[in-house]
Design a protein around this nucleic acid. Structure first.
Length: 566
RNA sequence: GAUUCGUUAGCUCAGCUGGUAGAGCACAUCCCUUUUAAGGAUGGGGUCCUGGGUUCGAACCCCAGACGAAUCACCA
């Protein structure tokens, strides 16, 4: 059912067509200025052509005001009947503009720049071109002189589902996504200046590797095999280092079939970079250099406001090993502890455990519970337990640790990096360890990618790799606390659409076509629902619907309704 | 998955103790030659999320469900 306003717009559309205007013209519309250019460089009397959406309209007799929103902002337009219609025929103003155009229509405007009495730079309109008619009314948020927004369009579900509307009416949304684009561009610029090669690796993988996460499964018909959407691209990028690239990187969409919340979307973007002959110490410097560069390029400063905190991305960042961090925040030295003692320590610290947890997992729990949230300023946490880092090289000084770091910012993980494990025999053992862990109850089994082992057997130079969550980085730099705000189209439950009655179904029961829509409207949305109801009730409801909606068809007889049930 | 809160006009929201569904914006008609969220007058617009129940009577109370938000848990 169309709302009254939608019906009125459709009627206006018909009138426009009858008047001889094509509401959806095919021709290119050449405009001379963006709104921002006119506002920034006011030239009284300059002739301009602009194009955009009509966002405000205020009719005052012979004169009207409006505003046009284009890609770069908004500008006021002023219309005067006798300027638009210099001849006898005033219909272009009186009918077309005043009656048949609506807020939301896309217009081309020709006119001259001037300042109103109140001093606002405006375009005095000489000619209007309708470029596209809008049939659905927009929400109408208004900002007053104190900067307070009235009637804000702020229901998250509606905003995410109709991002196009969100972008039209909420200026800050567009800014977020412009900034996101800038962040990615400047990261790419940084990487490509180093002469590393941007590559693309498979999204459909037969073995989903490189991380511990549940994948999405799909099926390839011609090969008749299952394929997985990638959870990470790490193993492919390392194959390329084997192949002789010095440095490779990819901005990768990864897919993880797990819970969704404010910080997790089923598909998300990571940038991973791998560089030959480097180690994780080098990568720390590289990472802080890159982040500082991006902040300066995008924000012009290394000080970023996140919530109530100001975070400084000025290098160098603090570095601390995981074990020292735990010692610092709990006073407990766990460096020499075995599994049993770790379980006891967790108990003492009120950390929940279960039997499937190995040593690494326990340490990770302690860190996650007691330390992680303390690191507001960018901090590299280094040297993770070996059990939780199956793709990472053993620490040069300690067999139980790995050469790994995570970069914590505002209490959350932003980047993760290793000195990459390049010993194929060790790698195979580590994969097998993971499978043992998986058998103990962890359902996120890492399958063994034998081709990856084979690649390592050919020899991979010592390499350091780093992955950084683009969505998280953008959240930080845009001061947004939810990932949905930095994704144009965050994943939502599929929308339910009212597609109307399935007429064939009803016709099969010999129901007259004129009664199908009424049946549907009063709740008998399918034949099976209808047949469950009593014919007498259906009969009564139909006739009262007829009366209420003043249908021009004769009342239905009970016998007719009963006939459907035979 | 748990708890709490919410769902009323195109949008933002009121709606008291259960008693004829409301406001602002938007829309329509009329008046008005430069307005700054808001000129004036009049008017139209509703599956009060859905389905049951209680009641003479339900937007409101009870039960079940759908959807959403927040917090927590789980998972990286």
């Amino acid at each position: 059912m169309l709302s009254e306003q939608e019906q009125i717009r459709r009627e206006s559309l018909q009138k426009i067509i009858s008047y001889g205007i094509n509401p959806y013209p095919a021709e290119e519309f050449k405009f001379s200025h963006y709104s921002s250019q006119i506002l920034e460089n006011f030239i009284d009397g300059e002739k301009v052509i602009i194009a955009g959406r009509l966002m405000r309209r205020k009719i005052q007799g012979k004169a009207s005001f409006g505003s046009i929103q284009d890609a770069k902002g908004k500008i006021q337009i002023y219309l005067n009947r006798d300027i638009i219609c210099p001849d006898e025929d005033k219909s272009m103003y009186n009918d077309v503009f005043k009656k048949w155009l609506d807020l939301g229509d896309i217009l081309g405007i020709e006119g001259k720049v001037f300042k109103t009495r109140v001093g606002e730079i405006s375009v005095n309109v000489e000619m209007i071109h309708l470029l596209s008619k809008s049939l659905k009314p927009l929400p109408q948020p208004k900002v007053d002189t104190d900067g307070i927004t009235h009637d804000a369009f702020n229901d998250p579900e509606l905003r995410y589902r109709r991002r196009y509307v969100d972008l039209i009416v909420n200026d800050y949304v567009k800014e977020t996504f412009l900034k996101r684009s800038k962040v990615i561009n400047s990261m790419r610029k940084f990487l490509s200046k180093k002469d590393y090669v941007e590559v693309e690796t498979p999204i459909l993988q037969s073995i989903p590797g490189g991380a511990a996460a549940k994948p999405f499964v799909t099926h390839h018909n011609a090969l008749d095999v299952p394929l997985y959407l990638r959870i990470a691209n790490e193993l492919y990028l390392k194959r390329l280092i084997v192949g002789g690239f010095e440095g490779v990187y990819e901005f990768a969409k990864d897919f993880r079939n797990e819970g969704m919340d404010k910080t997790h979307n089923p598909e998300f973007t990571q940038m991973e970079v791998y560089v030959a002959y480097k180690d994780y110490h080098w990568m720390m410097s590289f990472t802080e250099e890159m982040l500082e560069f991006i902040c300066l390029e995008v924000l012009g400063t290394t000080d970023v406001k996140i919530g109530n905190n100001t975070i400084s991305f000025k290098k160098p960042f603090k570095r601390i090993s995981m074990l020292n961090s735990i010692k610092e925040h709990t006073g407990i030295d766990i460096s020499k502890m075995g599994v049993k003692e770790l379980f006891e320590t967790c108990k003492k610290l009120n950390i929940e455990t279960n039997d499937s947890m190995g040593k690494g997992k326990l340490i990770d729990e302690i860190f996650g519970e007691k330390c992680e949230s303390n690191y507001l300023q960018p901090t590299f946490i280094t040297d993770y337990p070996i059990e939780m880092s199956p793709l990472c090289k053993k620490h040069r000084d300690n067999d139980e640790l790995t050469e790994r770091f995570e970069l914590m910012v505002n209490g959350k993980e932003l980047a993760n990096a290793y000195s990459e494990l390049n010993d194929p025999i060790d790698q195979k053992l580590r994969f097998e360890e993971q499978i043992k862990l998986a058998e103990r109850g962890d359902d996120e089994a890492m399958l063994i990618d034998l081709d990856f082992i084979r690649a390592l057997e050919y020899g991979m130079p010592p390499t350091s790799g780093m992955g950084i969550g683009i969505d998280r980085l953008v959240m930080f730099l845009c001061n947004q606390s939810s990932i949905q705000e930095v994704l144009l189209f965050p994943q939502m439950k599929p929308e339910k659409w009212d597609t109307g009655p399935n007429k064939k179904e009803y016709l099969k029961l010999n129901i007259a076509e004129s009664w199908i829509q009424p049946l549907y409207e009063i709740g008998y949305t399918s034949v099976s629902i209808l047949l469950e109801a009593k014919p007498t009730a259906v009969h009564q409801k139909l006739n009262s619907y007829r009366k209420k909606n003043k249908l021009s068809i004769p009342p239905i007889l009970l016998e007719e309704v009963e006939a459907w049930y035979k």
